[in-house]
Amino acid sequence: MRRIFADLHTHTHRSDGVLSPTALIEKAAERGLKVVAITDHDTIAGLEEGRVAAEKHGLELLPGVELTVTISDNVVHLLGYAFDPSNDRLRTYLDAFSDGRRGRMQAMIDRLQDQGVTVTLDEVEDEAGPTAALGRPHLARILCRKGHAEGMQEAFDCYIGNDAPAYVAAPGRPAREAVDVIHEAGGFVSIAHPGQWMSGHVMRNLQRAGVDAIECISPSHPDYLVDYYKTKVQSSGLLMTGGSDYHGGSERRDERLGRLGLSEREWRPIARRWRGDGR
């Protein structure tokens, strides 16, 4: 079995994951990982807790974040890595994302109320916690608890999924702006899980915007796509990233941690970019 050394795509309860940063790091250590990136959606609120836990368990924590951006009339996700979390421009940028997510949540709540489903923003914020990026899973859990849906899937299917009546698209900022912010904070940027749907046009425009890497290894990538994107990074001179996109929850999702990511050899180019060495 391929030994996984680094998982560069994980989520905690600071966005739409299940585990706290501490619990995520503990589980990662149990499964033999040596490097983890916490990449919560549009927030870095979990990084300090994750750093303390990683130090305790002998892991390295690569600073990370997953950003929702727009390019060529498409919404895509970018992964920012190895930045300075205290950078002022980065913090201002993420604060604006937080405000946008809060506005989006209120818009979905308004649509639910139009259908006779009563949920308040206070309830969602209590569910999410004060520093979390508000997301649909927080709202879905409220819908389940109040008896409007029997499970998370039903909440999405009936109310807040992409084709459901209360759906509102996540806020996004231009990709080039996101890349510039991460670069200014000393980091680098990877295209998250491009999958089969990302057109060559969008990929080229992201490269023109200054991305540094492609996430080749992802649970949404079967072997042939992994091979395709590995060939692409080799031909373009980009870095390769990879991870489990771990959120926790179901047994199937939980199995991903420690099974998807980079080998030690694949990790070394990232280490050189981050630390300036090849360890």
Rank of each mutant, 00 (worst) to 15 (best):
R51T: 13
V52Q: 08
V52W: 04
A53I: 02
A53L: 05
E55N: 09
K56M: 15
H57C: 08
H57V: 06
E60K: 13
E60L: 15
E60Y: 11
E60N: 07
L61T: 03
L61I: 09
L61N: 01
P63F: 05
P63Q: 09
G64Y: 00
G64W: 01
V65L: 09
V65M: 07
V65Y: 02
V65G: 01
E66D: 08
L67W: 00
L67F: 02
T68H: 06
V69F: 01
T70N: 14
I71F: 00
N74A: 14
V75D: 10
V75A: 10
V75S: 13
V76G: 04
L78I: 09
L79I: 10
G80P: 00
A82Q: 02
F83G: 00
F83C: 03
F83E: 00
D84L: 12
P85V: 05
N87F: 13
N87C: 15
D88S: 14
D88Q: 13
R89F: 12
R89T: 13
L90K: 02
R91L: 15
R91P: 00
R91F: 08
R91S: 07
R91V: 11
T92W: 11
Y93Q: 03
Y93V: 07
Y93L: 12
L94H: 03
L94V: 08
L94W: 07
D95L: 15
D95A: 15
D95W: 12
A96E: 13
A96F: 06
A96K: 12
F97L: 05
F97Q: 01
S98V: 11
S98G: 09
D99K: 13
D99A: 14
G100N: 08
G100S: 09
R101V: 02
R101I: 04
R101W: 04
G103C: 09
G103F: 02
G103H: 07
M105H: 05
M105Q: 02
Q106G: 07
A107V: 05
A107P: 07
I109M: 08
R111A: 08
R111N: 11
R111Q: 11
R111C: 05
R111V: 05
L112H: 02
Q113C: 03
Q113G: 09
D114S: 14
D114M: 13
Q115P: 01
Q115F: 06
Q115T: 04
Q115D: 10
G116H: 09
V117E: 07
T120R: 07
T120F: 08
T120C: 10
L121T: 07
L121E: 10
L121S: 11
D122V: 13
D122R: 12
D122S: 15
E123A: 11
E123Y: 04
E123D: 10
